[in-house]
Amino acid sequence: MIKGLGGLGDMAKMMKAAKDMQDKMGQMEEDLARMTVTGESGAGLVRATCTAKGELTALEIDPSIFVPSEKEVVEDLILAAIKDAQRAAEEKMQSEMSRMTEGLGLPPGMKLPF
């Protein structure tokens, strides 16, 4: 603490820590936008790729499933692959958040906004 300033020295320290945390959060958000995860369905017949933030970036469909009478099955497989990729993205984001915040002394399970 700085002499003669009372609690202002502690306040400055807290403000610096908050700024550092904000910078780390911004960097992590950028990193999550670059990380990708893949979900699949139908034993790999449909694959969906998302960023770790959940943005769908690619969809691969094995041509063998394009049978007109199986339209509903194909639609279900596509949705299942996208949901699987989004689930994997959520897990990756939570894992990265936990890794970043483990040294902050936050209560277990506390989610930061984003």
Rank of each mutant, 00 (worst) to 15 (best):
P63W: 03
T57H: 09
E102F: 07
A17P: 00
A89Q: 00
G54D: 02
V37P: 06
V73E: 15
L104A: 06
P113T: 03
M15K: 14
V37F: 01
E72G: 02
P63H: 10
R34V: 02
I2S: 06
G109A: 05
D62Y: 08
G42V: 03
E90Q: 14
T57E: 04
E96S: 04
M110K: 07
E90L: 12
S41I: 07
L8S: 14
A12Q: 12
T38H: 09
S41T: 05
E70R: 11
A85V: 11
T57L: 14
T36C: 05
P113V: 04
T49Y: 07
A85Y: 01
K111T: 15
M110D: 04
S64G: 12
K92C: 08
L32G: 03
V46T: 01
D76V: 06
A33R: 10
A17Y: 15
K71A: 11
E40G: 10
A43F: 08
R47M: 07
T51D: 04
L56W: 00
M21W: 13
A88F: 06
D31Y: 06
G109K: 01
L79K: 03
M97H: 07
I65V: 10
T38W: 10
G26A: 08
F66D: 04
K71R: 12
E72D: 10
T38C: 09
G39M: 08
A85D: 00
M28E: 03
G4P: 03
